[in-house]
């Protein structure tokens, strides 16, 4: 029996992320959610700069490449002029919280119905693992080689904390997208609970947009290559360190799409 493939992806293209990177997982869930909601034909993806850019070869919906950090501005313009479209962006933590924070918080304040998916892997992945605004102490980056965040940089930036201050945000959630490693007696296993929860978050965020609200979901993911860890170690790190620092959970669901 043949399996029905998602029309949101080019059947013969492979994504260009590193093995085990959850960027691909997020992209897959977006593709699945667009199909589930039946909005593939009016979806517009705005690509930001960073590893999230690499989606353009893989995803088969209309695509606009934004400058670094400016995806929210472009999304708002498209949404205002094409109210029927379903506009979303995948932004990295460096893209959204460093260079693009102004655009992001203005978009959140206005509440124009667009969706931002933030993939937080706590480093600048594409440029080679530099410190990001979200980098915690203890994670060695190429610009904090000692693994300690310089004091004057302040603590890691918490996107959900910032955005929870804006009434324009109608759906705000932080989820872990990384499969949790489970150690049984004889072997390592990965749980699929996180993946399913992340998919639900994607779905609910897009539903919120369709209901006319700004939605934002932060995904805690890995960048094992730049963290200089194995895939297994990096997944463990997310569950043991990242998730303690950035608490996952639902911050806001104004339209009750979670139910």
């Amino acid at each position: 029996m043949e399996v029905k493939q998602l029309s949101t992806f080019f059947p013969n293209a492979a994504n260009t992320y590193c093995p085990g990177c959850e960027h691909g997982l997020l992209l897959k869930f977006i593709g699945m959610a667009l199909e589930e909601l039946g909005v593939v034909d009016r979806a517009v993806m705005v690509g930001s700069v960073g590893c999230s850019t690499l989606a353009y070869k893989f995803i088969n919906v209309d695509y606009v490449q934004a400058p670094h950090g400016r995806a929210p501005s472009i999304m708002q313009a498209i949404k205002l002029l094409e109210p029927e479209s379903v506009v979303f962006a995948i932004q990295g933590d460096g893209d959204a919280l460093s260079i693009g924070l102004q655009e992001l918080i203005n978009a959140a304040n206005r509440g124009i119905p667009v969706t931002v998916f933030l993939y937080n892997n706590m480093v600048f992945g594409m440029t080679g693992g530099q410190m990001a605004p979200t980098t915690p102490n203890g994670l060695k980056t190429t610009t904090t080689p000692g693994g300690i965040r310089y004091k004057y940089l302040g603590p890691p930036l918490d996107a959900c904390k910032i955005l929870s201050g804006f009434d324009g945000v109608k759906y705000l959630k932080r989820v872990i997208i990384t499969p949790r490693p489970i150690y049984t007696k004889d072997r390592l296993m990965y749980s699929s609970k996180e993946a399913i929860e992340s998919y639900r978050a994607v779905l609910n965020a897009l539903k919120t947009q369709l209901n006319g609200g700004f939605s934002f979901v932060e995904f805690l993911g890995t960048c094992n290559v730049n963290w200089k860890m194995t895939i297994e170690e990096s997944k463990k790190y997310v569950h043991e360190v990242t998730a303690k620092m950035f608490r996952p959970g639902l911050c806001r669901d104004e339209f009750g799409v979670e139910k």
Binding site: V64, P67, I74, L81, N106
Partner: peptide, 27 residues
Amino acid sequence: FRVFFQTSSEIESINMLFGAGASGHIA
């Protein structure tokens, strides 16, 4: 003339223009 928008900076202006142009609108 459907959208009049005071942006938060020129950087946002140009990117909104970019979005409007990319979706085929006169901006």
